[in-house]
Every structure is written in C-alpha cells, then in structure tokens.
C-alpha cells in the first residue's frame, strides 16, 4: 500500500489539487493529513470540502496549531499577520467545518507509523523539529519505526544512529529512499501550501509500505492563482508574495 502524507496545506486549494493528483498518479491508495489544513491561504472552505470527505472515507488527519487557532482563542503563539489570516478564516467557516476540525486528534498511529503535526513529545506544545536533538527526542517519544511530522516546512529525513543519537539527511526530490527496519526514521514531509525554501512547488511525501521506502516529491502548481486569491481576499500581501517566491 502506498500512503501519501500531506501536511501544512494552509488553505491552498491549487497546491492541494496538484499534490492529490500527483499522488494518485503515483498509485497512492491511502492519505494522511498532518495538520495545518488552514491558515494563510484563501480557500479554507474549499480545502475542507475535499479533505473532510476523504477522512470520512478512511483517510487520517491530525490537528495542527493553525487548525486549533481557528477553533478559538487569542492565537498568542502566532505572528500578527498569521493571526489576521486566522480571524479571516474563522469568518469563512460554518458549523459543519468547525465540527469537523473539532474531531481531529492530536496524534494518530497505524501499523509501524506515528503521525503528528509538530512533535511526538507533548504535541500540544507545537515544538519545531529543526535539529537532531529534538528529532531524537521525538523518535523516542513516538516509539514507532516511522514518525511523520509537518509544522517545519522543510523536507528533511532524520534517523537513529548508534547510541540513540539522530542523523539528518536532506532528501532529493523524486528519489526513493529505502527505510530499513531496525532504525527509527523521522520524516518531515514538507508543506503542501506554503514553501519557505525559495522554491514555489508544493511538497508532500509518499510512503510505500510494501517496498519500505519514502519518496519526497515537489509538485509544480498554479501558485499565481493561489497568490491572486490571497490578494483578492484582502489577506496580508506577504502571504501572496511567499507563494510566488517560495520564501
């Protein structure tokens, strides 16, 4: 079975469409959404109209910090511009969408895989895994052979080495990486809807359970339209620019 793992969609409908179509063409049969379905982008409702039925049909989804923020509170942990997007998003959603968001669990497990938005260590604290120390702690806490996380928008692969330390590897897009059984692997799958590495294409990961491999993908999509919608909605200009520049 091939599992497409998509994270940080951030209300970017064009990028979501492109990644789902790409994953289907690669033979994905199961889908996992690692949170931050909303925030930043201009299509929150349209994105949920795609994702919620997929979850009803068996796809997995977990809560992200932006999704939690949409449900209420003052969003103290978000930057001002991001808060503006959250307030705007709240106005776009109806009760069914809010009900769907409330059902999202913090973590999810299936077989040898563990899914969480930020870190398996206290998921509600939304820690960023951006070095080998936090990565090692996360793998220890998850206890699974494979841990999939989002939150950090850069595609990265961590793995355990001797003595419990973690090593880091920057994957090459489109290259299948075998993940051997007696190590733990932590995959940061990248962001579907908002890039921060200077390159606009959307990112997601395909996990081939049968071949025991991970393939990171970058998928070109119509980011000009997505950016145009952000401007038309009156959302902060920097979120539109970010899609155009990829950073």
């Amino acid at each position: 079975m091939k599992v497409a793992v998509l994270s940080d969609i951030h209300s970017n409908l064009e990028a979501l469409h492109a990644c789902l179509a790409h994953a289907r063409s690669k033979g994905a049969e199961q889908y996992v959404f690692l949170g931050d379905l909303l925030g930043y982008g201009a299509d929150p409702k349209a994105c949920l109209e795609i994702i919620a039925p997929m979850v009803s049909a068996g796809a997995l989804a977990v809560m992200g910090n932006h999704d939690e923020a949409v449900l209420g509170g003052f969003c103290e942990n978000l930057a001002f511009a991001a808060r503006d997007a959250i307030y705007w998003t709240r106005e776009q959603l109806g009760q069914p969408e809010r009900d769907f968001l409330k059902t999202l669990p913090m973590v999810s497990r299936k077989d040898n895989a563990f899914y969480v938005h930020a870190s398996a260590v206290a998921p509600e604290r939304w820690t960023y895994i951006d070095n080998v120390v936090t990565a090692a702690k996360c793998m220890k806490a998850s206890g699974s052979q494979l841990t999939f996380v989002g939150h950090v928008h850069h595609q990265t692969l961590y793995y355990t080495a001797g003595g419990g330390a973690a090593q880091v590897f920057i994957p090459v897009a489109g290259v299948e990486i075998p993940v051997t059984q007696h190590r733990q692997w932590l995959a940061i799958v990248g962001s579907v809807g908002q890039q921060r590495d200077g390159s606009p294409p959307a990112a997601y990961l395909l996990h081939d359970q049968h071949r025991e491999s991970l393939t990171y993908f970058r998928v070109p999509y119509d980011y000009l339209s997505a950016a145009g919608k952000i401007r038309a909605a009156g959302l902060p200009e920097r979120f539109a620019l970010r899609l155009e520049k990829g950073s």
């Binding site: 692969l157 793995y159 080495a161 001797g162 590897f169 994957p171 290259v175 990486i177 075998p178």
Partner: peptide, 10 residues
C-alpha cells in the same frame, strides 16, 4: 548519493 550515508555516521 541520494540516500543517507549510514557508514559515515556509524
């Protein structure tokens, strides 16, 4: 070259 170098870290 497209995979983690397990030998180096070991």
């Amino acid at each position: 070259f497209h995979w983690p170098d397990l030998v180096e870290e070991a």
